[in-house]
Design a protein around this nucleic acid. Structure first.
Lengths: 212, 212
DNA sequence: GCTATCCGATAGTGGAACTATCTAGGATGG
DNA sequence: CCATCCTAGATAGTTCCACTATCGGATAGC
């Protein structure tokens, strides 16, 4: 197919497709003549993945590029694919390190020990968590961390479900994509469900009269 | 205190504070003379909240402004504060509505019925969820929705914990802030925990050798 | 009086994600 | 074989967002 059809099928404008090719997010089409190229289903699939990660996952294009590069490389151990997906999500906010972050990192390490989780506190997730704890304290809501254990228990459940999902895939390509999609879109899915659960929980707690 | 000290205490540059005042995110200081103003702890607190929502929550300033406006208005029912916080998070992506979204909305309605949740499918959370389902299907990972029920169960747990947290607050101001912080930063906290849980779960499933 | 700081206003910056335009060439129906 | 539309590749421009810089006065505190 030519770029016009790819655009029609995927819903992405032609100039945007060209832009993604320039940015290295999408492989160029196979040239059939100096100014004519053909695209296949792989391009369409890739394009849909990019849009999903961008629109729903909210990842910046640069992060999407990194994830795709790791995904594509068959040399990369699967473990690193998961790591890359996780790392790309982290907004990587900068700020003065300070002792607050140190304290938070210790809290994270304690949590991991308490739960017996097999991961280091220095991993991307651990760093993100420490940053969240710092932000909570700086915003005057340090007591929110009391919910850490409840949250962790729920996260464990979700992670089990996620792993079950990717475990069902056989081809490496599918598996890798499953990890990425699961990590990124799963986050959005859970966030939406959590908001719905909030509505339900507060309707039950405060009663229907709170709506009027 | 004057703006310089506010800046030092909060870690936000003076021009940025002025910018936030211009944008209506932060009330102006109390003028003590035509070109001199004084700021108090409330300003500092507000500033920390803005930075937390911006840096960790990733909310755009416009959304933060809306949330703050709802928070400040004592006329607003608490229920709406939660709604505003939830709505602001939704990335509000636009695209052709299509029948895909209709189908997804039905799936959401079915889920709510199945779980017996007291909320309408048309709420912000429901719309977000429907959009995620559409994105999953468009990306060729429609089977990921099989995890919906597991995710929903975990979301229920988290929501219970959240409500417990805000329920402990007495003053309306604190309560409202608790809702906002809980909604926004709680999401980031859970996301980080989920990534840690992924590492743990895959370490257990694939064994330690997967690291090398 | 002197220097650091401040107020308010206006204009400029840099990054992200496109979008527009242009040239030169190819595809295709009649 | 010609008119019309499509295409590749290149360059430049746009929009939005979150700041950041600069300026002309005025004030604080010694």
């Amino acid at each position: 197919m030519r770029i016009g059809e790819l655009s029609r099928r995927s819903g992405v404008p032609v100039p945007t497709i060209k832009f993604y090719v320039r940015e290295g997010l999408l492989p160029a089409g196979r040239l059939t003549s100096p100014n004519q190229a053909s695209y296949d289903d792989g391009h369409e699939r890739r394009l849909r993945l990019i849009r999903a990660l961008l629109d729903v996952g909210g990842l910046p294009l640069a992060a999407i590029g990194e994830v795709l590069r790791v995904m594509e490389d068959p040399e990369q151990p699967l473990f690193d694919v998961l790591g890359a997906a996780a790392k790309s999500i982290a907004p990587s906010r900068g700020g003065d390190p300070g002792s607050e972050l140190e304290d938070a990192r210790e809290d994270v390490a304690e949590l991991l020990k308490r739960k017996g989780w097999l991961c280091e506190a220095g991993s991307p997730g651990g760093e993100s968590l420490a940053e969240v704890l710092v932000a909570l304290r700086r915003a005057g809501h340090g007591s929110f961390v009391e919910l850490l254990d409840d949250y962790a228990a729920a996260a464990e459940e979700v992670a089990r479900a996620d792993l079950d999902y990717v475990g069902r895939r056989v081809a490496r390509e599918d598996l890798v994509e499953g990890v990425v999609v699961g990590t990124v879109l799963g986050e959005a899915m859970f966030a939406a469900l959590r908001r719905l659960a909030h509505v339900d929980a507060s309707a039950r707690a405060f009663g229907e009269e709170a709506r009027g």
